[in-house]
Design a protein around this nucleic acid. Structure first.
Lengths: 238, 238
DNA sequence: ATGACTAATAGTCACTACGACTATAAAGAG
DNA sequence: CTCTTTATAGTCGTAGTGACTATTAGTCAT
């Protein structure tokens, strides 16, 4: 890094958040309606400028709270996705944006704030088109989360503190867009030490009909060894 | 992103590169000796300011060429690692740095250039301490590369256009710091369609003694399904 | 040459993980 | 009750892989 030899050009640095959740059996993204130009009236990912005294991670949490009014960010899983720096990605100035993927269980109802006219959970498939290059950021976040489900215990970040194995399986199926065999999924999850741990009191929960399911908590493990690979979409030969 | 409501503070945006290679059975990192303050005389990762008209990726390639004089960047694998944005990571101004992990086969000899007094391949274990937060960036790059070897075909990026399976295995062993069983490694690599393809002419190469090895090229595959997991460092129970 | 040494390649065996199932248990709805 | 629904238990065959042994094809020394 040479500060002295070359004059450096100042950039605006922003954060953008692809916040995902699983509700009603479908993947949803948290979007805001832009109140100002450019792209006023269009939907976009929440985000905003990084302040001089904060890191991108701090800015991400702050902007999320400001723009969507979400107060309970305790269960929020925040993770850097990548940085988008192509010149021209913002029509009026040079903006470098640090993008984050975020997961939230039990999505609370958002409401617009600061410069967001509105904020809403939108089904992933109906989210586009978005302002700026946010279509791509959202797709990158989806891809990254899907990949991380394979070899980490990230799926529990989509679940409330106590959950059933059926709910956990729903997360996988929703993010991957596949169906999984229930007994096999169960066997795999329980065979992975530290992935989930049973809630000891014979606690059970009923979603309606059917046999009540046992409740589990997220365990201390973070990695899945061996991984839980998503089924490859190849047809079997004749 | 709100340009209008809040005044935004300009940041300096830089790139830093953790360039890794495998030589003489050891992992090496490409380092430069800083010519200017701060940290003049200290070793650091190559990098520099992003110009107003280029993306971080473009800046990374340019800075690498400028600072280390490497002319042949054809085999270079460049990949965004993450962005480091903590306030105070640079002693004199607010700098946000987009870090890259890069892999290079057959390391060419570097020489200092622009603001780098010197440039050199340094064995990974003897690389620290580095200027700024580059110790951490280098460690993060190592971790990321090690993980990607498991489930991608990235290892071929460390190898010249034609290589033996022994060389490929050396890459895994060097990055992971483990040893692997040769027949099993071979079986796994050859069983993965598109990982490597044999060079058809009975081409062979001799490194010295022993039976000559067949030559292979990188295949079209990018992902490893199922992955090649590194052995977990757990001792077996009695 | 001849034998020692080295490294690549071939093949075996047992065990684990997992996909595709079938069967049973425990609830609510009619 | 019986039917439906969902959770949970268990079975079977196979692919993948760790730990080996054996063979092949070269160099290096004598």
């Amino acid at each position: 890094m040479d500060y002295d030899k070359y004059a450096y050009e100042p950039f605006a640095v922003t954060v953008d958040l692809a916040v995902l959740t699983v509700t009603e059996g479908a993947l949803h993204a948290l979007l805001v309606e832009r109140g100002q130009e450019p792209y006023a009236g269009h939907w976009a990912l929440p985000g905003g400028f990084v302040h001089p005294d904060e890191s991108a991670e701090t800015a991400a949490r702050r902007e999320l709270a400001e723009e969507t009014g979400l107060s309970d960010l305790s269960g929020l899983h925040l993770e850097q996705l990548r940085t988008y720096s192509e010149p021209g990605r913002d029509p009026r100035m040079r903006v470098v944006s640090v993008a984050f993927a975020a997961l939230l269980p039990d999505p609370p109802e958002p409401h617009g704030g600061s410069d967001a006219a509105d904020a809403r959970w939108v089904p992933y498939d109906r989210a586009r088109p978005l302002a700026f290059d946010h279509d791509r950021i959202l797709a990158d976040a989806h891809e990254r989360v899907g990949a991380k489900l394979e070899y980490t215990c990230l799926a529990t970040a989509f679940c409330p503190p106590e959950f059933t194995l059926g709910e956990l399986q729903q997360v996988y199926e929703t993010v991957w867009g596949t169906t999984l065999d229930r007994p096999n999924f169960r066997r795999k999850v329980l065979a992975t030490p530290g992935f989930v741990e049973a809630v000891p009191g014979a606690a059970r929960l009923t979603g309606g009909r059917g046999k009540p399911a046992a409740l589990y908590r997220a365990g201390p493990a973070t990695a899945l060894h061996p991984p839980l690979l998503r089924p490859s979409p190849e047809g079997r030969p004749a």
